[in-house]
């Protein structure tokens, strides 16, 4: 595996007020690999993810995606990139409570301008693939946490992204449900060739990855290529 990294960050720094969340973090992600970002709470894991995904603009450092420097992109351009190339799974509170599950999953497609019917048809396929097609017509408030996370994974995958950013995707789940979500997430991403940046503090979740990096005090401490 000697291909150029899909996503490469060097010297990322980001401060929230007086506290530095990231100070000179380096990171590289190859197409299709699953990388766990580990570290104690407060170490800057989530900030790293937000910077890598272009949600937050770093104070310093460069970020290249697919060989293109995206540090200087406008907010609009970064939003568009996130819509088309990235997918997201968060710990909780990410599904729109008023929309049904299938509508939630169809949302990224519709934001990309797809027609409602087509978007919902594809959303339904993904719900089935994540074994939650029975929740399609239900609202997020009416399903279990594990089902909700699988719906969220379906939503992250529906737009065929090249990178999925998952921030503690199993944080609110019990072991069994967490495992099921991780299995489906990693299987699906491997099938579609999507790379995954998986922020977690749990080793058993990180064990689903190909390799891990550790963030400590705002910098990435160990980063070795998987064998």
């Amino acid at each position: 595996m000697n291909t150029a990294p899909l996503l490469e960050a060097t010297g990322l720094s980001k401060a929230y007020g007086p506290t530095a969340a990231l100070s000179g973090a380096d990171f590289a992600l190859r197409a299709g690999e699953v990388v766990a970002v580990m570290g104690p709470s407060g170490s800057g894991k989530s900030t790293l993810l937000h910077c890598l995904a272009g949600i937050v603009r770093p104070d310093a450092g460069t970020l290249a995606y697919d060989g293109r420097d995206i540090t200087a992109l406008s907010d609009t351009a970064r939003s568009a990139l996130r819509r088309t190339d990235f997918g997201f799974v968060f710990q909780f509170g990410q599904l729109v409570p008023e929309l049904s599950c299938v509508e939630n999953v169809a949302l990224p497609l519709r934001l990309n301008g797809e027609k409602r019917k087509a978007a919902e048809a594809r959303a339904l396929e993904w719900l089935a693939r994540l074994e939650v097609d029975d929740t399609a017509a239900k609202r997020p408030g009416e399903i279990s946490g594990g089902q909700g996370q699988r719906v969220a994974v379906a939503r992250a995958l529906v737009s065929s992204p090249r990178v999925i950013f998952a921030d503690e995707p199993t944080g609110a789940l019990d072991s069994l449900n967490g495992e099921r979500v991780m299995r489906l997430l990693t299987d699906a991403s491997r099938d579609t060739g999507a790379a995954v940046v998986l922020v977690t503090h749990e080793a058993r979740v990180a064990a689903w990855s190909d390799r891990e990096v550790v963030v400590r005090d705002g910098s990435v401490r160990s980063s070795e290529w998987a064998a």
Binding site: A206, A207, R221, S222, E224
Partner: peptide, 24 residues
């Protein structure tokens, strides 16, 4: 000492990954 711990963690995770694969 920190490097020592990091190395150990990597080793642990390597095994855990293997176990996870076997389990799957």
């Amino acid at each position: 000492a920190a490097e020592l711990l990091d190395t150990q963690r990597a080793e642990h995770l390597r095994l855990m990954r293997e176990l996870t694969r076997r389990k799957k």
